[in-house]
Nucleic acid binder design. Structure first.
Ligand SMILES: [Zn+2]
Ligand SMILES: [Zn+2]
Ligand SMILES: [Zn+2]
Ligand SMILES: [Zn+2]
Lengths: 365, 365
DNA sequence: AAATGAGGTCACGAGGTCAT
DNA sequence: ATGACCTCGTGACCTCATTT
């Protein structure tokens, strides 16, 4: 797949810690997670725009970006990904491409068609397993990516339309993320802010709407054959995204820094060694300085990212009415309204229970 | 590897700041970049030929040479080099040797063969699975995956074709660079020119569009097995090189020195500390003397070097319609024209997305 | 079996050090 | 000021558990 690293934009090496990332960002996140102390404060007001070239210039902002795109050490999963997951990724890619190119364009083809085409290809190959790509030359191998748009060929034209509804409102993950973060957001997110007063004023809506970066987002799920999809990972993603946004917008900052220790924030169920080490670091230094906040936010965001995954237990992929969720989601229900997405997610039990990875996995399988 | 320092010719210690250099030139560039003021004007009309023995004689010309070979503090890469990079370096070396020896000679062996042999060795080790994508994955590692190439798959074939044409026209990086610079170029480049009137006649073409100087350039890529190489780093390099030349020849100088401050030139997105220091230096001294110009050009060239890598963000591997871009680019369109190269690069998403190092790394893997 | 990601390994290069 | 040498963060590649 042609996925790009959600953090730096380089071609992604895979889905790591909850997001498509390159090897570098994967390793960076893995290392940093257990060694926050090694990250020095941003010298640019935590507003660095991370890209392939400068990703090593500011560790603070790189980590921030990692968290922003949903990376988390919890809930990781192993094993081969389902074909649906792959398909979904493809669709998402196409969508993004489409959005970029013909942003204002008039959608000719309903992407339903596009999707169907894809499905056809898939089913054909499926027997062999060829995986998507196989059939369509373009796609090529699952991993290898197809660079191309695999999907593509036939679809490109149609593809763009999928999102016509959603896109406008919902920022594409990538597009939304890559661009410089709104200063507001950036300021909010200052993991390494000199501390100081927290940007509570941001709590409002404006911020909420922007966040977006659902690890994966696509409108395709509505097309997925019900039988295949137990739980729409797609929706889930949206939900997650929404949740994240809520988190960000309503994050309850410690009114008195000292009052809430980061420890409290850490996940309860989490046995993760890594997590512990982080907390230890935090406790270690008693001062409630910038360092404190840095770690505080780190934990906060991490918990948020982790939580989205934890729900799974509660609602297994099936539990929630598939049909309802799948269909109703963004499309039918609030198809027009952009902000909607969030709503859907929240209302949809299914989604809530899923995590990025899980979501992806659950579907179909 | 037997690489030589691109600046002074001494055996290289590694790939530093975008070029193979010795420890001395590496350190020199690292120091000078942040302390331009320490560099005094050349007393030889900026025409000093830098070599191992005299490299410390004229800092101005040494720095100039550094920039000429593509050194830049931005976008440096860390970490281990990909196997492809190594292979590429080997090929490049061989090619150079070949060129030197049988310059006018009639090539018996297309070096395609040579390359293929190399590739075979390499692929044997890794692959197994290569199949997919083309095989390309040749490279082995699981994750690596794609990183690279993704995009390309479909393009690979085209890519190499591109170059078949180009090579002749495109000077090999090394060979092109090492030799004395064309006088025009040299004059333009006078970083430490006594100042005097700027080469306004050069102002012409759009600076913006030009991209960059390729640290490494080689003609080999055209030979790369399509399947293996997703994106021809080789081409990219050529392109970059060509572009650099264009830049040099057509660079638009500030009509009114005072009007355009070097600061404006600096990258927007660039948070690089180093860059800042440079700008600071510049601002520091108010006089618009030779010093001003020196720094102005320094920034200009630096930006140029930096930009070559930056494009990545702009055109993600996917964004552009693969088919269209890939094919249409240099081939069909202006396939014959040599200057074309630049076009290809710009049009070709693949190339754009890559940077020197990245190029090398990315390919197939 | 095949695929896939978390972790681990260690080649590398940016930076820093310090004798020259 | 230079450049040989050292430190350590980075990231390409590999191993292996996990999942399909
Ligand atoms: Zn990355
Ligand atoms: Zn920063
Ligand atoms: Zn040298
Ligand atoms: Zn000189």
């Amino acid at each position: 797949m042609n996925q790009q690293c959600k953090v730096c934009g380089e071609p992604a090496a895979g889905f790591h810690f909850g997001a498509f990332t390159c090897e570098g960002c994967k390793s960076f996140f893995g290392r940093s997670y257990n060694n926050l102390s090694s990250i020095s404060e941003c010298k640019n007001n935590s507003e660095c725009v991370i890209n392939k070239k400068n990703r090593t210039a500011c560790k603070a902002c790189r980590l921030k970006k990692c968290l922003m795109v949903g990376m988390s050490k919890n809930g990781s999963r192993y094993g081969r990904r389902s074909n649906w997951f792959k398909i979904h990724c493809l669709l998402q890619e196409q969508q993004q491409q489409r959005e970029q190119h013909q942003q204002s364009n008039h959608p000719h083809q309903p992407h339903d068609l596009m999707f169907l085409n894809l499905m056809d290809d898939y089913s054909k190959n499926n027997h062999n397993r060829a995986s998507l790509s196989s059939s369509s030359p373009s796609i090529s191998s699952p991993d290898s990516h197809n660079s191309d748009s695999s999907v593509e060929i036939g679809d490109k034209k149609k593809a763009h339309q999928l999102h016509h509804k959603i896109p406008p409102k919902m920022p594409t993950p990538t597009s939304a993320i890559n661009p410089p973060l709104p200063s507001q957001l950036a300021s909010f997110f200052q993991l390494m802010p000199p501390l100081g007063p927290l940007p509570l004023h941001l709590v409002g809506s404006p911020f909420t709407k922007m966040m977006p970066p659902p690890p994966l987002a696509s409108s395709a799920h509505s097309f997925l054959p019900p039988s295949f999809f137990s739980s729409p990972f797609h929706d889930s993603l949206h939900h997650l995204y929404a949740q994240q946004q809520n988190f960000l917008s309503s994050a309850n900052l410690p009114s008195s820094p000292l009052a809430n220790l980061p420890n409290n924030i850490s996940n309860n169920n989490n046995n993760n060694n890594n997590k512990e080490s982080i907390n230890n670091n935090l406790l270690h230094n008693g001062s409630k300085s910038a360092d404190f906040y840095q770690k505080y936010y780190f934990n906060k965001i991490n918990k948020f990212n982790d939580d989205r995954d934890e729900n799974d237990d509660v609602t297994p992929s099936n539990s929630p009415p598939l049909k309802v969720d799948v269909n109703s989601p963004s499309h039918s229900t609030s198809s027009n309204s952009p902000p909607i997405i969030c709503d859907d997610i929240q209302n949809n039990p299914i989604d809530l229970s899923m995590k990025n990875e899980d979501l992806l996995n659950n579907n179909t399988n």
